[in-house]
Amino acid sequence: MARAGALWSDSLAEQASEAGISGIQDYLDTAEERLASGDNHEAIHNARMALERVVKSIANRVADTVAGRAFGNALDVIEARGIIDRSTRIHLGAPNVSAYGWLSVHGSHEDEESEAVVLRRAAEGRYGVAMTRGAIRLILDAFAEFQRGTESPSER
């Protein structure tokens, strides 16, 4: 339930729903289940899918031409619309060194043969899922501010 006067909801699933995005909770729940069972690779794969769904869905909401395009293209769209800034775009999607890059290396894409790095430590799996939740929160909060036409806290 959203806090009174808050720009965001406490629940990622609720906040995503308010933004018109469905399905992320299923990915996040599966990520948590896989993590609990020790299947770090699948946990990270599902975390990456949740992040990808959020970014592509928001890009599709603000520009009709994004559907089916790469994650990086979707990030470019939401940066161009002013939803995220350049440094956030780099943090989320720069090749090989970003949040998405880390998730892609450690959790394969469904449509590709994987050469994924095996996560040997549960700590790495927990980090990947937590990082994804944080990234999704950041993007959803930024989109909520964008939709409401509000300034970011740093601009106050």
Rank of each mutant, 00 (worst) to 15 (best):
27 Y>W: 09
150 T>S: 13
135 A>D: 08
18 E>W: 09
59 A>L: 06
125 G>E: 04
1 M>N: 11
9 S>G: 05
127 Y>V: 09
110 E>W: 13
106 H>E: 10
2 A>G: 05
22 S>H: 07
118 V>Y: 01
90 I>H: 04
135 A>Y: 02
152 S>G: 08
122 A>V: 14
110 E>G: 03
155 E>C: 03
10 D>R: 14
137 R>Y: 09
78 I>W: 03
83 I>R: 06
1 M>A: 15
21 I>Y: 03
69 R>C: 01
94 A>H: 07
150 T>H: 09
69 R>P: 03
62 V>R: 02
12 L>H: 00
136 I>M: 07
82 G>H: 05
5 G>V: 09
49 M>A: 13
89 R>H: 11
11 S>N: 15
6 A>T: 04
24 I>S: 05
51 L>S: 00
149 G>I: 06
18 E>A: 15
133 R>S: 11
143 F>K: 04
7 L>G: 12
95 P>H: 03
51 L>A: 02
19 A>L: 10
134 G>F: 11
57 S>F: 02
25 Q>E: 14
149 G>W: 07
89 R>S: 12
118 V>R: 06
9 S>Q: 13
44 I>W: 01
55 V>L: 02
103 L>T: 03
85 D>K: 08
5 G>I: 09
124 E>R: 08
124 E>H: 14
44 I>E: 03
60 N>G: 14
146 F>H: 15
4 A>R: 12
1 M>V: 12
93 G>V: 07
48 R>V: 00
93 G>P: 05
22 S>K: 11
86 R>Q: 14
156 R>L: 13
76 D>R: 14
27 Y>E: 04
154 S>D: 15
133 R>V: 07
32 E>S: 11
116 A>E: 14
153 P>T: 08
66 V>A: 04
31 A>E: 08
78 I>P: 02
143 F>A: 04
36 A>E: 13
153 P>C: 09
65 T>P: 02
13 A>S: 15
89 R>A: 12
126 R>C: 07
91 H>L: 15
150 T>W: 07
120 R>G: 15
29 D>Y: 04
106 H>T: 10
45 H>F: 11
131 M>W: 05
32 E>K: 12
54 V>M: 01
25 Q>Y: 05
80 A>I: 00
123 A>Y: 10
142 A>F: 09
96 N>K: 15
130 A>V: 07
63 A>H: 12
143 F>W: 06
48 R>N: 06
21 I>T: 07
67 A>H: 11
54 V>Q: 07
155 E>T: 06
67 A>R: 15
2 A>I: 10
109 H>M: 08
135 A>C: 15
119 L>E: 01
40 N>Q: 05
21 I>A: 07
66 V>S: 03
78 I>F: 05
156 R>S: 08
44 I>A: 03
124 E>N: 10
83 I>C: 02
15 Q>F: 02
143 F>E: 00
11 S>K: 04
145 E>Q: 11
100 Y>G: 00
149 G>Q: 08
62 V>M: 08
139 I>Q: 05
17 S>D: 14
104 S>R: 05
38 G>C: 02
138 L>N: 05
123 A>L: 14
33 E>A: 12
83 I>P: 02
37 S>F: 01
44 I>T: 03
34 R>D: 12
100 Y>R: 00
87 S>D: 14
40 N>H: 10
14 E>G: 11
109 H>Q: 08
151 E>N: 04
45 H>T: 09
126 R>W: 03
11 S>M: 12
143 F>H: 04
52 E>Q: 10
21 I>R: 04
57 S>R: 00
